[in-house]
């Protein structure tokens, strides 16, 4: 149900800091949620969501390969199952909200980091997250 999802998402948004841990937590929650949603929807929408979920998870993997300690310390929140009736616009809005928050943190991290390698990493992640976000937003329309 969208209601519990938005509550869970609010908790994630509230408790994540502006650092790589925060980005990882947000991507984790968004990726898990996307996969869960994709399994409950018919295949035409579900496959698109699964692709978006793959993109999000790849971005998350990039974070954990660059910062191996992050997956061990960051908060991992699963938004949980959705009810039998799915309000697609509301649920996708929750996912897009999570990805937007990840964007904000990535932008700050990109500006703050003087290291060119780290900057290119965050650029790459931003690119992946953006494509996933666009795909999800497209579905809600």
């Amino acid at each position: 149900m969208g209601y519990t999802w938005s509550k869970g998402a609010d908790a994630v948004l509230e408790h994540t800091a502006v650092d790589w841990d925060g980005v990882w937590s947000l991507l984790y929650a968004a990726g898990k949620g996307t996969f869960r949603l994709s399994l409950q929807l018919p295949l035409d929408v579900g496959a698109e969501l699964a692709y978006a979920g793959m993109d999000i998870c790849e971005a998350r993997d990039e974070v954990s390969w660059a910062h191996p300690e992050v997956p061990l310390t960051a908060i991992a929140v699963d938004l949980g199952p959705i009810g039998p009736v799915i309000d697609l616009p509301a649920t996708t809005a929750v996912l897009v909200g999570l990805l937007d928050a990840a964007f904000d943190r990535l932008t700050v991290l990109q500006d703050a980091d003087p290291d060119p390698d780290a900057r290119s990493l965050s650029r790459q992640i931003t690119w992946r997250v953006r494509s996933a976000r666009e795909a999800i937003q497209e579905l809600a329309r």
Binding site: G31, F35, S38, L39, L43, A47, A50, G53, M54
Partner: peptide, 18 residues
């Protein structure tokens, strides 16, 4: 379609492993 769904479930299931 059933095969596509089976692959989808497998793909999401494999995500949990490290």
């Amino acid at each position: 379609v059933a095969t596509a769904q089976a692959f989808q479930e497998l793909m999401i299931d494999l995500r949990d492993y490290l």
